[in-house]
């Protein structure tokens, strides 16, 4: 079955459902800007997206980009200038903008591929039952997916059956939590110790977190929605096929 269809709309593998969906190229470009690599997750290019996110964390850390952002928004421009590492900064900027452009361009192409796949209307598989995994299309609640990822990035992906991506995201969230000490800070704030709650935070790692929460939440929402659409398409293909020879006559002659 695999690789036989010229223009498949979706495929179900051990790692979950991969599907073509039309999306606004500007939105894809925006997520690439928020966190390089996120745009490529939206484009279903998981391997390169994952490598891009790793590159982003490493280079951003070496260049002190996040610390410079904090200083800049706090108005301390001299400090911002002094922390940025010039030996990494220019390369970072070149790659950063390339990624945004590449995801924008790919979104335009994929929209066309998606249109073609829709017109071909090739049969979509409903399940993939394997010795160690079971993947299937099922109706989802997009709001629930978004909520899970908001509280702990990765959980929404787990809800959407993308377990490899889910555990990758959860691993990073644990790393961010550990290095930024965000949950410790929240605990200190709960008991009213505001001064210390700010002091324990590490800005370099904390500043990765808003983009990751945002991206993960958005992605979980979109994927749950697309799963619903795919479920609908697959069921329609099935019903049209199975009941095409109905002999029910509403007005018999």
């Amino acid at each position: 079955m695999r690789n036989q269809l010229r223009r498949p709309l979706a495929t179900i593998s051990v790692y979950g459902i991969n599907l073509l969906h039309r999306q606004n190229p500007y939105v894809v470009a925006w997520w690439s800007a928020a966190f390089p690599g996120f745009g490529h997750y939206l484009l279903n290019q998981y391997i390169r997206a994952t490598l891009l996110t790793i590159v982003e964390v490493i280079i951003n850390y070496l260049t002190n980009i996040n610390i410079a952002i904090v200083y800049s928004f706090c108005g301390e421009f001299d400090m911002a200038k002094s922390v940025v590492q010039p030996r990494w900064a220019i390369g970072y900027i070149i790659i950063y903008f390339f990624i945004i452009w590449d995801s924008y361009r790919s979104a335009l192409v994929q929209n066309k591929l998606c249109h073609l796949a829709q017109l071909e209307n090739e049969r979509v598989a409903a399940v993939n039952l394997r010795p160690l995994e079971f993947q299937y299309i099922e109706p989802k609640k997009p709001w629930l997916a978004a909520l899970y990822s908001f509280f702990f990035p990765g959980l929404g992906q787990l809800y959407n059956h993308q377990f490899a991506l889910a555990f990758y995201a959860m691993m990073w969230w644990w790393i961010y939590l550990t290095l930024s000490r965000a949950h410790e800070s929240v605990t200190l704030m709960m008991v009213g110790n505001f001064q210390e709650s700010i002091a324990v935070l590490h800005p370099q790692w904390l500043l990765f977190m808003p983009s990751v929460v945002g991206g993960s939440t958005y992605y979980a929402y979109i994927m749950a929605r697309e799963h619903n659409r795919l479920f609908r398409i697959e069921q329609r293909q099935f019903l049209a096929e199975r009941y095409s020879h109905s002999e029910v006559r509403l007005f018999p002659r």
């Binding site: 606004n24 939105v27 925006w30 997520w31 928020a34 952002i69 904090v70 800049s72 928004f73 706090c74 965000a182 800070s185 929240v186 704030m189 505001f194 709650s197 700010i198 935070l201 800005p203 904390l206 500043l207 977190m209 808003p210 983009s211 929460v213 945002g214 991206g215 939440t217 958005y218 929402y221």
Partner: peptide, 29 residues
């Protein structure tokens, strides 16, 4: 609307977190 909302939220969260280091309530809130 949710697409636009999440994009706005993420952008504001980065700015809010940064500025928060100077505010009494801190960067997380």
């Amino acid at each position: 609307a949710i697409e636009v909302g999440t994009a706005f939220a993420t952008a504001c969260a980065v700015i809010g977190t940064s500025v928060g280091f100077k505010l009494a309530w801190g960067p997380i809130f």
